[in-house]
Write a protein that binds this DNA or RNA. Structure first.
Lengths: 191, 191
DNA sequence: CTTATTTTGTATCAATCAATCCATAAAGAA
DNA sequence: TTCTTTATGGATTGATTGATACAAAATAAG
C-alpha cells in the first residue's frame, strides 16, 4: 500500500547513540547525524520527530544496555564478590580502552539534567543500578560472603556513586594504576 | 593615554563561570553572556578573545577555588578524619541545595574532554585533589588516625573518584539519605 | 495497470551562532 | 587644549542551527 522504509531504524538509533555518546547533545548537529546515518533530513524527521526525541531513544538504549550488562554480571555468577570486582574492573577497562568516550548516561546527567525526560531516564537507571547492587549484596550476606552487620542498601548507594566517579575519572585521563587502585580500595568497604 | 575599562574583568569572569556552570559550554551562547554580563560584544572579545578563552578562564577559576576549598578543609584541621568527613558532607550538601548546578569541573570533563586545554586543566586539578588527599591521609597515618597497613595513595585515588561520583549523583536527583549513606560507606575504607 | 500511501532527497526556512567592524566616546599625555 | 590610544556598543558578517515543504520515487492493494 505504501513505500517501504529503506533504512534500518534500529541501526539508525544505534549510530545516533554513538555520535551523541562521543560528542554530546548540543555539539552534535542534525547535519552530523544526517551525514553519519546516511539518511536524508526528511526521512530522519519523519522517523524520529526531533533531535530531542532521537536523543531520548539513544539514551534509553544506552541505559538499558548498560544496566543490563551490570545485571548480567551480578546475577549470573554464584559468588557475588568476584562478580562485583569483575564488573568494576570491566568498567575501568572500558574507560582505559576508549578514554574519549566516557559514559553516555553520565554525560546526559551533566549536560542535560535540566531536561525532564533525560533527568527521569537517568534517575530511573540509577535506581535500577542501586537496587541491582543491593540485591546482589543481600544475596552475598545470605551466603556468608558479607558480614551480617553490613548494610546492603548503603553499600549499594555507595557503589552506585563510585561507579559514576569512575566514568568521570576515565575521561579525566586517569591511568590504569589509578583506576585499579581506586577499585581495590572501594571493594574494601565489603570487608 | 587611553580610555579606561568600564567593567570589572574579574567580576565578568565570575559571572561567565556561573553561566557556563549552569548551562554548559555549548548551550551558553555569546549572546547569553553579553546579556548576563552587561558588556557589549566588542568589549567582551577585546577583553577575552574568544568564547573558548573565556571558558578557560572560568574553568581555571572554578578549579582553583574548588581544590582550594578542599585543601583548606583538610590542612587546617588537626584531626584528619573529621575534616575529611566534613569536606565530603559539605559537597553532598552543596549538591542537595542546588541540584541543578552540579560541578563545573565534572561538566568540563564530560562535555569538553576533547579540548586539550580543558582536559589538561581538569587532569591537573584531579592530581592536585589526589595529592592533597594523599598528604592528609599520610598525616593521619603518622598521627595514628589511620592503620599503618593502609595505603594513603590508593585511598586518595579512591576518594578522588568517589567525589566525582557524588557530583554526578547530585545531578541525578539523589536525595539526602542516598548521599549521606554513600559518604558513610565510603569512609569505612579508612577503618 | 491504477491508485492510494508513504519514503526519499533536496531546497529552503527563519533563527541563531561566534566573531568582526567601525563610528563614537572617554581618558591620560603633551 | 590637542592628540593619541583604548573602550564601548550596536550593526553586521557569513556560517550553521533545527526543522519544514514539496516534488519525485517507490510500494502494495484493488
Amino acid at each position: 500500500m505504501a513505500r517501504t522504509r529503506e533504512f534500518d531504524t534500529d541501526q539508525a538509533v544505534e549510530r545516533a547513540m554513538d555520535l551523541f555518546w562521543r560528542r554530546g547533545y548540543a555539539a552534535t548537529s542534525m547535519q552530523d547525524l544526517i551525514a553519519e546515518l546516511g539518511i536524508g533530513s526528511g526521512s530522519l524527521y519523519a522517523a524520529f520527530g526531533s533531535k530531542e526525541k532521537l536523543y531520548a531513544l539513544a539514551l534509553e538504549r544506552y541505559c538499558s544496555r548498560n544496566a543490563g550488562a551490570l545485571i548480567a554480571h551480578l546475577e549470573s555468577a554464584e559468588e557475588v564478590r568476584p562478580a562485583l570486582r569483575a564488573a568494576l574492573t570491566a568498567m575501568a577497562e572500558a574507560d582505559l580502552c576508549d578514554p574519549e568516550r566516557g559514559c553516555l548516561m553520565v554525560n546526559a546527567a551533566t549536560e542535560r539534567a535540566s531536561d525532564p525526560a533525560t533527568a527521569d531516564r537517568v534517575a530511573a537507571t540509577m535506581r535500577l543500578v542501586e537496587s541491582t547492587l543491593a540485591g546482589a549484596l543481600e544475596r552475598a550476606r545470605a551466603r556468608g560472603e558479607l558480614a551480617p552487620d553490613k548494610d546492603p542498601v548503603a553499600l549499594a548507594r555507595f557503589l552506585t556513586t563510585f561507579i559514576q566517579g569512575m566514568r568521570v575519572m576515565g575521561k579525566a585521563r586517569a591511568d590504569r594504576t589509578f583506576l585499579e587502585g581506586a577499585v581495590e580500595a572501594a571493594l574494601t568497604t565489603l570487608d
